[in-house]
Design a protein around this nucleic acid. Structure first.
Lengths: 209, 209, 209, 209
DNA sequence: AATGAATGAGAGTTCATTCAT
DNA sequence: AATGAATGAACTCTCATTCAT
């Protein structure tokens, strides 16, 4: 079924994917209406079900699609080689943010999936997604080439790293929250990044020698 | 319409509210079935629509109800008098947790509302809720009687406080996430609190003299 | 669900049952459209599903209904006390025919069920129906009080009875076939019965002393 | 349209016919899916509708095809020359059975048509089929060269013949019913034919001198 | 005040048929 | 001659809401 979809011209595929992503993101799986999707994609009802076995088939296709995007457009850009932990977190945040900006529909779709519907996905997806998230976090925290000598001697490096991680994550999620609400222009966004860098500076003075 | 509902004997009101809260929490607004609600509340279909104009009316009523509970059962217990910032955050977390335990239906209803359906609420509700959350955070941070002399001299108190706040919030949200998933018994919960206290200890050694 | 249906005024129940019976009889289970049923019964789409859980629920209800009719309106009238086998078969045919005439919709519904859809029914129904049919046939053939002395000495009674049974059944099924096709008035029907009686007479002269 | 179909190489025609016959036999007209048919026939959707105006066109074509088979493979083998009526019926039954075995798809298709969908066919088909069946029966009964002198004197030959015919038809239809249900191996089938012959023997002793 | 029978719009899905290629 | 992408009407079923009682 999906074969026939992937044989479509890219443009038409994209239109359908964008329509579906945004409606699923908005309403969640159950309340997303296939009627609305075909309307937004400007195809007929029958056509959607010609491409995808059923609503669930479309949904899973989109999850796969989104996971691929997140991997190719975000995860591959994470740089685990930096031994400076704060620098590494900072790079990561910026890579994540770039992906947010470039694939807002993918991101909001995936957020909805993760927050609201993860538990009702088939186990294979739960594992796949769980692994992806765990793996990133683990690599971020555990990669042994972290330069522990950067940390002040009075702090245990893993405890310091934990606090740094929570702080940056918290900071970042407030940041994206603000972006979402206020639809900030890029100019304002500059300012926010400056503030973020300042925040990282503070963390440095707190935890680093 | 709501007048007639509030004239009901408390017991019956509570039964309806509890039924509706738990079903909305479980399913979200759209997928909550009024049939299931009246069944759980042991009233007739007509009765529900006699008390509330429509499903949305019931939903908004419950939001108001839940906000009142959260205010009376959690927010009033926040102690802004403690001048030790970490202590204050700790008290707050514990107060929040107590409310979680005592009003699980209210809490899970409100979580669902906040995470999944906030954006589709009328602006008035969005503001109301936004204000409530902002206000708490602001009070937590800004109340000037914070004992700034506790902080190490090399840190700006407000910057230190910000990091502490983000770290504790992050820690706490991971904690409640774990609670949700694993349905922990109280015994296990003890252990988690010990770990939390240890975490606070670390924060103290980092930021306090 | 069925409770609410059976609380309806008899007239309305009958209208729905008649509509559903005739459409299921005509089209078989799968091709019978609930749309057409509600149209014929002059009720709304929702109402049918208010009374019956789903299409299958309605179908099974009708089978039960039909089996009850066939039992009360046909089977109880079978007289196994007559020891004259041909007479017994004759009585049976006439009882069956009377039920055909009085409950044509029930009969054609049940025919469709038996011929076309029996194997896809739940086992419980298959057994129920199978038993009903076997039982009637067995009682008809085996009831030991058959007056074997009526048969000519040169024939084995059971072999004679078998031929008689097949002949009468065949005759009768041709008869009802004709009735179906030609929508005969009662007057013509008289004539057919005369012919039937003549046929039985022939059987008598062949097999009886 | 059918012209183009009949210009196809025989092999391809057969493949399509066999696919369609078996699916119509299995599911009946309405529930037979043209998708399944083209899949089984290994042709494309468009091709089917290029050869046949529409689903109904295909169906009617198959009825014609099947009627031709039944005529060429069964009816021409009926031997009306035997003057022994019982022998003639016996031959007929065996010819019919041979055709059952050799063209099971044709037979089960035609059974489905006759039992379930006859009444919804156009009148022309109903007549055609009705005539075919009547005609066979009439020839069987009326062909004047029946050796009337075989019958016992006390029976009217035509009345005796009628009973014999009904008995054999009934016997045979029970037989094929059993075959259908139990998917009998040939070995078991032998036994059934022995029983059939015994049955004919009984008929002989009853009606013949 | 309280009931529950009745409604109809809209949900996901199937399928014979068309038509550009 | 042959394809298969595309269609839309019809399918079964759900559900918030109304209203006579």
């Amino acid at each position: 079924m999906i074969d026939s979809f992937e044989k479509l011209e890219q443009e038409k595929q994209d239109k359908i994917i964008r329509a579906a992503l945004s409606i699923f993101a908005d309403k969640g799986y159950k309340d997303a209406s296939t009627n609305k999707i075909v309307e937004a994609a400007e195809i007929s009802k029958g056509t959607l079900f010609y491409y995808f076995k059923n609503k669930k088939g479309l949904y899973y296709y989109l999850i796969d699609y989104a996971l691929e995007i997140i991997q190719n457009e975000y995860m591959v850009y994470i740089d685990y080689t930096t031994t400076d932990f704060i620098q590494r977190m900072s790079n990561n945040s910026k890579a994540k943010y770039r992906y947010y900006q470039e694939h807002p529909e993918v991101n909001s779709f995936l957020s909805t999936v993760l927050y609201s519907e993860l538990t009702s996905l088939p186990d294979s997806y739960q594992e796949k997604i769980g692994f992806l998230m765990e793996d990133t976090k683990n690599k971020m925290m555990d990669t042994p080439i972290i330069a522990e000598e950067l940390f002040k001697d009075e702090h245990k490096p893993e405890e310091a790293a934990r606090i740094i991680q929570l702080a940056i994550e918290g900071y970042f999620s407030e940041l994206t929250e603000k972006f979402k609400q206020s639809d900030l222009s890029n100019e304002d966004s500059e300012e926010l990044w400056t503030d973020f860098d300042h925040f990282l500076g503070t963390l440095r003075t707190v935890f680093y020698k």
